[in-house]
Simulated assay, not measured.
Amino acid sequence: MDFSLRTCSWRGHATYAPDETELAARLHVSTPAGEAWRCLRCGDFVVGEPRHRGPADAAPEVPRGRLLRDRFIMRLLAVERVLRGLVFVALAFGVYKVRNSQSQLRAAFDREMPLIRPLADQIGWNPDNSKIVHFIEKGWQLSPTTLTLIAVGLLAYAAIELIEAVGLWLVQRWGEYFAVVATALFLPFEIYELTERITVVRAGALLINVAAVVWLLWSKRLFGINGGGRAYHAEHSEESLLTVERAALAAPGEDGA
């Protein structure tokens, strides 16, 4: 997939006319249909006026190539974090809502269980050995204060997920660090859950989070890994089309020297 062309098809081409005459000449051509400027994202020449003008140093940062692919991956991770955060918000709301209704819910649960047993016998399900039923029964024994604290804890976890999502979606450096630290802190809990019971959802969530941590550490050069912050910023600069064209302009002068 050519992420540059796909992004240009969604958002339009990122053309820019620098004030520097020689640099502008490398980004501009005349055609029978009119003047055309080179897109800083996909590299194609686009007929029409440039979207922006100004000094080359003031040009917007336009990710392209691998950097654009990385941005796409980070935003997929952000969407996954949003969905997870919303799930925990719903759980927190549910726990908080029933904190003072345990006796009524328990009475309703005990009243309905005998009606469920004949159907359970037909499908071979034994409610007495069901972990779901035991988990619900344990919930009746918790005090309203404990349930409130559980709801607050669930909301705190949801907030962490949503902050991760914002940082990743905006492709911020702090978001990359926050996502790695927050995700790594909860990995031991996810591993412990698998020791209790292996499910597709738990195993899939663990694999996604491990892959996200490893990918962010290496690809985004966090904590000094793979060259660190200096290499990270240098890579962003080197990928810029304006940087490439500037280097091409400087090369003949260096050779002549």
Rank of each mutant, 00 (worst) to 15 (best):
W10S: 12
E239M: 13
F186I: 12
I73E: 10
L40K: 02
L119Y: 14
A56Q: 05
L154D: 08
L154R: 12
Y192G: 06
E61W: 15
I163C: 10
G34K: 07
R117P: 05
R69Q: 15
R71M: 10
R202G: 13
A17N: 07
V29D: 01
V47T: 06
F93T: 11
P188Y: 06
Q102D: 06
K220Y: 05
S30Y: 10
H233F: 14
W169P: 08
D19S: 11
G34E: 02
V62L: 05
Q172M: 12
Y16T: 04
P114F: 09
L217K: 02
A203R: 00
H28E: 13
A205M: 09
L194K: 01
K97L: 11
L207M: 07
A156S: 09
N226S: 11
Y157S: 12
A247Q: 13
P252Q: 08
V47P: 00
N226R: 10
G12W: 00
M113I: 10
E20A: 13
T21F: 12
F88G: 03
A14D: 13
L149V: 10
G94T: 04
C42V: 01
P188T: 03
A234E: 15
G228Y: 08
L115F: 07
A158V: 07
K131R: 15
V213N: 02
G85H: 08
K97Y: 15
R246T: 13
L115W: 10
E35T: 06
L249G: 04
D19N: 09
H52G: 09
F186D: 08
P114N: 07
W218S: 10
N209E: 04
L27K: 05
E239W: 09
L105P: 03
I208T: 03
A205Q: 12
E196D: 13
I136P: 03
A59Y: 06
M1Q: 06
Q104L: 15
L91R: 04
R246D: 08
L155F: 15
R111F: 13
C39N: 04
A156P: 04
P18C: 05
Y177I: 06
P60R: 05
F223A: 09
P63L: 02
D128A: 14
V181L: 11
P32D: 08
A182G: 08
S219I: 03
G175Q: 01
N100K: 04
L216V: 00
N226Y: 07
F186Q: 07
I160P: 09
A179H: 02
T31D: 00
I198C: 02
F223T: 05
N129Q: 15
L77D: 11
A251R: 14
I132N: 15
P127H: 05
E190I: 00
Q141H: 11
L216D: 01
A165S: 13
A231V: 06
V166C: 07
S237Y: 14
V201I: 15
A231C: 06
A250I: 08
R221D: 05
V152R: 06
A56Y: 07
V87F: 13
I116M: 13
G48R: 00
A247D: 12
G85T: 04
L115Q: 09
S219K: 12
V46M: 09
R41D: 02
L194P: 04
T148M: 15
